[in-house]
Design a binder for these strands. Structure first.
Lengths: 183, 183
DNA sequence: CCCCTGACTATGAGAAACCATAGTCAGAAC
DNA sequence: GTTCTGACTATGGTTTCTCATAGTCAGGGG
């Protein structure tokens, strides 16, 4: 089964380990957390709303205006993100105004910070005009932000030192075989 | 339903600096690099194809099977990603087979590594079953990978120390005013 | 030469995302 | 009460994304 390929020079990718080495032995759905993430924030509108929340926008009217999305889309997205626990509604009241809600990121939502930074960084890479656009920086030292990948041991991990494997190998193997037998 | 008193200062977000402090003074389009990134990889299919490329898939047939996408979508996505400089076509030939092309990430494409890690990490946060799914780890020490945000000075930057500002403030201000005058 | 295989393409149809417009509805102001 | 404002909702249409099916096309094998 393992047929060796003509090595396409140095193409570094993420190394597959363990039972996941045979990637085709695993169904396409439900085994990668990236899919799960895309289910929640995989649309353009979700990302734009989240961006504005990170930029400090909190109110419905702000969010529609600053994302350029239509009201219906923003309302629907906020409802979905609220249901997914990414944004939280907070009542507020300004003098002489009625009580309203504003939207802020939950802890879950703030967990998207590295995603935002990574996307912005990639946007830099594929941008053609270095003079335009906004830039994320460290509040104090003003140096630009960049995403880094580290492991639990504290090592900086470049792409060619990364690997991917199944989490609880016995557990998921049993799950897979059971669902196969059912067919 | 049980908490009153909204204190807006407890909500940490990215601080806006300089001319961007008045965020409404800037058009919604063209000033954020995240948008640019989303133009290239903002669809589900693009992300899934890129994931499989990172996981070591290189061939058309592999990519369709492992993403679960239809052939037409994968072909179209590969064409677009090729046009955007994210994937590269490499000819190869197996014994007794005709010459074919395989697809590998370019440097630009590999720049998406932090995005992949960040999305996978977020997928973890919003996942409910810690025993299933795949896990990104350091190839040697097997410790799980996580994205970190650092500034150019090497400081670790949490969300509440991040800021956003315009890149070349004079330049983009001039651009904006000119395009406004044209209207 | 014809056949076969695997990488693509073409087409049509359905779903999802999105927009623009026109509403509804709660509550503070009057 | 009546008005008004701003947060939403409802409707319909357009675009984009995606799938399923059925092709085409190149080239190696016979």
């Amino acid at each position: 089964m393992d047929h060796e390929r003509p090595d396409p020079t140095t193409t570094d990718v993420i190394e597959r380990q363990g039972a996941f080495e045979d990637r085709d032995a695993w169904p396409v759905k439900g085994y990668c957390r990236i899919e799960r993430a895309l289910d929640l924030v995989g649309t353009r509108s979700a990302m734009l709303v989240i961006r504005e929340l990170f930029y400090g926008g909190t109110r419905y009217e702000e969010l529609t205006r600053r994302t350029g999305l239509s009201e219906a889309v923003v309302a629907g997205r906020l409802k979905q993100l609220h249901g997914d626990g990414i944004v939280e509604r907070r009542p507020y009241q300004e003098a002489g105004q009625r009580r309203r809600d504003e939207y802020v990121l939950t802890d879950r939502g703030r967990a998207l910070f590295p995603v935002i930074v990574a996307l912005a960084e990639f946007g830099d890479v594929v941008s053609d005009d270095p003079r335009t656009g906004v830039q994320l920086v460290h509040r104090n030292c003003e140096a630009p932000l960049a995403p880094h990948v580290r492991c639990g041991e504290g090592h900086e991990v470049p792409l060619d030192q990364a690997a991917v494997r199944l989490r609880d190998e016995e557990h998921v193997t049993a799950l897979r075989d059971r669902s196969r037998a059912q067919r």
